[in-house]
Amino acid sequence: MVSTETAAPVKETSIWTAVSKAFLWSFLICLGIVVVYPLLWMAMNGFKNNVQIFGDPFALPTHWSWQNYVRAWNQGVRDYVVVSVLVTVASAICTVMISAWTAFGLTRSKLPGKPIVLIVVLGGLMLSPTVALIPLVKMFQALGLYNTFWALIILYTAFRVPFTTFLIRAYMLDLPSELDEAATMDGASEGQRFWRIILPMCRPIIASCIILHVLFSWNEYIFAMVFTSGTDMTTLPVGLTAIMAKHGTDYSVVFAAMTISALPIVIIFFATQRYFIRGLAEGIGK
């Protein structure tokens, strides 16, 4: 008697747990489909021709041919990818290095007037790129940087430094100050403390910042369109619009080009997502 009375609530609880789990799984699967399906659909249509795309847009390709991908690659995507990679890598390195040094200064040095410096740096978060566009064009033209890689590298760095500094600073605040003191006792200079102790310990947040920066600069459109004009200076987002204009009716090539442009981001994100989540959670959560 006693045993049945105690068993009943356990059974009820397990049913509700199972039901809620089923709901959760269904919701997550639906969410996954909503996110992944458009990407798969886009990649799949890169294997079809126009007739198949319009005739049966949701069907699988009848034969798997890489022809559209090769055409897209040869008709400019290759050059756009090279430019995008160059600008993204250079600006990511600059952003992370400048931000990490700034965060180090703001958290682990005896810098006078730290709150003011912090306000100035974080104030950059409020600066809208669109508002600053015209003065920036004038400035870059005057400096002879217009239509150069440097224009994009400098702009991407400048506009991402505040947010990246904010993230790295939050992470560094959690690192115990005794590490700096131990390094100081060991004879390390401020630079050695940064390079050999603090920076290696910030790897999770640095990885997160790099991913966030890559997502931003890989997809950035306005600066890339305004500050560059020649085909040898075109990044992928601007290049894709050019391809769409050029092959406006050849959707299979456009889909192939879009898939190629999205692929690196998807691969990077999935390869580093554990790092990405850990870095962000550790930095702000504690």
């Binding site: 590490l179 131990a182 006792m185």
Partner: peptide
């Protein structure tokens, strides 16, 4: 040389 409360190992 100093030994810290929290060890302060790298």
């Amino acid at each position: 040389a100093m030994v810290f409360q929290s060890y302060a190992l790298y």
